[in-house]
Each structure stands twice: as structure tokens, then as C-alpha cells.
């Protein structure tokens, strides 16, 4: 059993019925995506419709998650807020990846000097608290969703950058890269066709995990008033708005919080499943 000569025939056949650990989070993520794309399907009402007579109603069959101080239906607001939270999460991850790809590939491909400079940059930004960075950005640009996206994006970029750098350095050493060079392909082509895609491959799962991380961070920043202003149904903003009434209207805090947790947990579960799959079937 020293060398593998027989094709791995005994490999586990692909499961036709996915496990519960995939179905449940996938359904939840699907629901969140639906809420983001077409909120009216799940919550036909107007998220900003004020009904002062129905203020502070606890969860009931009529108001699934209760109402807030202005009598707005919390279910409708949470559903309509999904789009903001998800977009901020995705946007922040996108920004992080873009920055990280530039830094990571520069460090991995640019030679020793570039690697030293970029490497130090990454290490320094690791030491810089994301919150502080966000405060700085808010101070410069004023609170807005795009500030939030930038802040969270810049804050999570160093982690990805370091991963990409390591991957690029590893893939560069692979025999298939040398084999492609030996065939007489241009360095540039080899980088684009072999190094780039193979270096990014393991990031698929990590990025999924990163999205939920970004959603949590963005909500946290919004809660501190650094993102979307309170009338908006963004989840962090909902939490912030409900803070004052938490002693007698618990649902204003618990329900949006639950939404954040559910999204983060289900996306993370999917990411982990993807990671297992990638590691299980590929090298």
C-alpha cells in the first residue's frame, strides 16, 4: 500500500440526498435571499407604515414579531432590512477580496522586495482595530452604508490577503506550473491560467464564512450609529432603535438579533459544508 496505482474506485458515491446539516441552512439562506430580492413576497406590508395606536404590541398572529414604538410591523421591517444587511455583507466581502487579491498576488508574485513591503503592510493592518478604522472612515465620510461597506471591507482584507499570498507561493512551486513553463507558455499566461485560479480555490469556503462575519460586523457598526440612519430597517439600525425600549419591549432587540444570528449561522454552515466537500473530493 505504498503507492496508489489503482484508481480510487472505492470513493464514496455522491450522496443523492443531502444531509440535514446542508438542507436546513440552505433553506434558511434561500429564504434570506428571497427576502432580499423580493421582500414583498414574504411581507406584503409597508415597512415604514406608522400606526401609533398599535405601538409596542408583543408578537402575535397579527404581528408575527410584534411592533415598535411607532406601531410599525417588526416582521415587515426585518424582512425588508435583509437586503441592506446582506448587501453590506456581500459588498464588504467583495471590497475585502478585491484589496486582498491585489495585495496577495503582488506579494506572492512580485519578488522579494514587494513581498517584504506588502507583507509588513498586511501585518500592520492586522494590528489596527477594525472599529477604530471604521470610526476614522465615518469621521471622514460621514455615516452611510457605503462607509460601512468600506470599513468592514478594509478591516477584513488583511486576513484574505495573507491567505492568498500563501496560496500563490505554494501554487507557484507546483509541478504543473513548471510543466506549463516547460511547454513554452508565457509566464503571464501561466499565472492567469494556473496560479490565479488554483490560488483562489480554497478561498471559496472561507469567503462564505467571511460573508456572515461581515454581516455581524456591519450590524455592530450600524448599532453604534456608524452606518444606516434609524428609520432604515437595516438590522443593526433596528437593534439600535430598539435599545431604549428593551426593558418592556424585548422583541425589538431579540427578533432582529435572531435574524442576524440565523443568517450568520446558516451561511457559516453552508460554507463549512462547501469546505468539507472541497477538501474531501479534491486534494
Amino acid at each position: 500500500m505504498t503507492t496508489q496505482t489503482h484508481a480510487p474506485a472505492a470513493r464514496r458515491a455522491p450522496r443523492l440526498v443531502p444531509s440535514l446539516g446542508v438542507v436546513v441552512p440552505a433553506t434558511l439562506v434561500g429564504a434570506f435571499v428571497l427576502a432580499a430580492v423580493a421582500p414583498s413576497v414574504l411581507a406584503p406590508g409597508d415597512p415604514t407604515a406608522i400606526d401609533l395606536e398599535a405601538a409596542f404590541l408583543p408578537p402575535s398572529t397579527e404581528h408575527l414579531l410584534g411592533t415598535d414604538q411607532s406601531g410599525r410591523d417588526l416582521w415587515t421591517r426585518v424582512v425588508h432590512g435583509t437586503r441592506h444587511s446582506l448587501l453590506i455583507g456581500l459588498g464588504a466581502t467583495g471590497v475585502a477580496l478585491a484589496i486582498a487579491a491585489v495585495l496577495g498576488f503582488a506579494a506572492g508574485l512580485g519578488g522579494r522586495l514587494v513581498d517584504r513591503v506588502v507583507g509588513s503592510l498586511i501585518e500592520v493592518s492586522f494590528a489596527f482595530p477594525t472599529m477604530l478604522l471604521a470610526l476614522l472612515l465615518v469621521a471622514v465620510r460621514g455615516p452611510s452604508p457605503s462607509t460601512l461597506v468600506l470599513a468592514v471591507g478594509i478591516g477584513s482584507a488583511p486576513g484574505y490577503a495573507r491567505m492568498i499570498r500563501g496560496q500563490v507561493l505554494a501554487v507557484r512551486q507546483e509541478a504543473y506550473v513548471e510543466a506549463a513553463l516547460a511547454l513554452g507558455h508565457r509566464r503571464r499566461d501561466v499565472v492567469v491560467r494556473h496560479v490565479l485560479p488554483n490560488a483562489m480555490r480554497p478561498l471559496v469556503a472561507v469567503v462564505t464564512l467571511g460573508i456572515s462575519q461581515s454581516v455581524v460586523w456591519a450590524s455592530g457598526l450600524a448599532f453604534l450609529g456608524m452606518g444606516v440612519a434609524p428609520p432604515s430597517p437595516e438590522w443593526g439600525a433596528l437593534l439600535e432603535a430598539g435599545r431604549t425600549y428593551v426593558t418592556f419591549a424585548w422583541w425589538l432587540e431579540v427578533m432582529p438579533g435572531l435574524a442576524i444570528v440565523l443568517l450568520a449561522v446558516s451561511v457559516t454552515a453552508l460554507g463549512r459544508a462547501a469546505q468539507r466537500r472541497l477538501e474531501g473530493t479534491d486534494r
Binding site: 509541478a175 504543473y176 513553463l181 516547460a182 488554483n198 486534494r283
Partner: peptide
């Protein structure tokens, strides 16, 4: 050297790692 490279082929010890896994 690039245009001449095709005239010198190579086979490695571990064939699997010499193929792009994708």
C-alpha cells in the same frame, strides 16, 4: 528560449502534481 521550449519535454516523478487539478 520560449519558442524552443517545446523541443525539450519533461516527465516528473509524481505525475499527479504535474497536472493542474482543475
Amino acid at each position: 528560449r520560449r519558442p524552443l521550449r517545446r523541443r525539450v519535454g519533461v516527465v516528473y516523478q509524481d505525475p499527479l502534481s504535474s497536472f493542474d487539478p482543475r
